[in-house]
């Protein structure tokens, strides 16, 4: 099965939030009371009941203002830190390259919450489980588009084979010119949501410029994990060798001192 990519062309996003709502509808995520806190953005961030959120961001440069809208959701990394750290195998790669979640397996350890370079997975205290976008695995595995893509009126969101989406993305970035770039295919071995960014990545709020699996996760999972087994094995082996070569320490009282004092 070929890898799939959700392409998010921000130059075409109008911030209508159809994607945000469609996600809630398909996944039956309940709404929660919010307050307007001085922005159109609501809920304020990704939440257990909000798997994708449009980030509204105003920028002002040289007197010209711009309003940026970014569909923020799971990036579905190939080298996915969440999958790497997940102790139970709840997070896994599907045959499409996306990262899905088997909620039944999740033990609520929150390790993925902190490993993710994009800070996507959210912990739900009510269910004691972590939850995130699974790129509508139930839909894509039935030859449908993810709900957010289906709802997008402008074509900012598209879904298709990796090769085709990358071609479209690069062509679009070239067409846009200036600071436009493709974001996603060059790190963490390639993500399965990619952006066409009309502006430099650094401009966008909460979008890491050079995301990667955190060093702490590499040190932990790639080095310390094998090392601890190796060390334990080494010690057990060493002890065995010690026993057979050097022998146990003699504490039986055969020594001069012992006999002498014992005789007292």
């Amino acid at each position: 099965m070929s890898e799939k990519i959700k392409l998010c062309d921000l130059s075409k996003c109008t911030g209508c939030r159809g994607c945000q709502l469609a996600c809630k509808q398909w996944n039956q995520l309940p709404a929660k009371q919010t307050v307007n806190y001085g922005t159109y953005q609501n809920p304020p961030d990704l939440q257990p009941n909000t798997w994708n959120v449009i980030r509204f961001q105003e920028i002002s440069e040289n007197g010209a203002v711009d309003w940026l809208f970014r569909h923020d959701a799971c990036m579905h990394c190939t080298d996915a830190a969440c999958v790497k750290v997940c102790p139970s195998g709840a997070l896994y790669h599907t045959k499409y390259g996306t990262v899905a979640l088997d909620s039944a397996k999740c033990i609520g350890c929150k390790e993925c919450v902190f490993a993710c370079p994009f800070e996507v997975p959210r912990y739900d205290p009510e269910t004691d489980k972590v939850i995130k976008c699974d790129m509508c695995y139930s839909r894509i595995d039935n030859a449908m588009q993810p709900a957010c893509v289906k709802a997008c009126p402008t074509g900012a969101l598209r879904f298709g084979d990796k090769k085709e989406m990358l071609q479209i993305a690069y062509a679009r970035a070239k067409e846009l010119g200036g600071d436009a770039s493709v974001y996603g295919d060059t790190f963490v071995d390639g993500t399965h949501m990619i952006y066409v960014l009309p502006r430099k990545a650094a401009v966008y709020d909460r979008l890491p410029e050079k995301p990667r699996v955190p060093f702490s996760v590499i040190a932990w999972k790639d080095w310390l994990k094998p090392l601890s087994l190796l060390a334990a094995g080494g010690v057990v082996g060493g002890a065995f060798l010690h026993y057979i070569i050097h022998g146990p320490k003699d504490t039986s009282g055969g020594g001069d001192q012992a006999s002498r004092e014992g005789g007292e």
Binding site: L21, P30, A31, T34, N36, N42
Partner: peptide
Amino acid sequence: PWLAEMQP
């Protein structure tokens, strides 16, 4: 609720 949540 979904709409009220977005523009409360």
